[in-house]
Amino acid sequence: MNSDKKLEFGVGVFVLLGLAALVYLTLKLGAGELVGSDTYPVEARFANTGGLSAGATVMLAGVTVGRVDAIRLDPQDYSAIVEMRVRAGLPLPADTMASIKTSGLIGDKFVALAPGADEELLEPSARITMTESALELESLISKMAFGSVNEGEGEDQKPSTSTEP
């Protein structure tokens, strides 16, 4: 009967440990704090996503508030449409600006949101019209070489030409 007790103990220990590890893996690591909790979709049109990929984080003031769901190409004007999901408890003003940034010099690309001051809020599935494309390292260097960094930024910041669907 002693070996039965040992068996029960071993199985119990392993099942508890294994379940704890599985819960950690699936709920804490895999899902982050977003999957499962409520989110709403937002779109943004960019002239150039510069290598942003699905799954990239969406940040506001340096805090993760969402993820990039998918990136597709609009065949009419060859611009990229980035579909994002943003945490439900976070209403965004209609004049929120989205820009694609890089963490560190060669780090991950992410979407940074900068809320505006509009009274109106973005509806779910609405499109953010103020966007700033990815900063390309090469063009940045060339601009620096010709001393026109500030002018270039103004050029890049043009609002999208699209209208709300």
Partner: peptide, 15 residues
């Protein structure tokens, strides 16, 4: 960065 990197798809692939 660990927390940020791992997606639910990665976990699904793993399992």
């Amino acid at each position: 960065s660990v927390q940020r990197a791992v997606e639910s798809e990665d976990v699904r692939e793993c399992l």
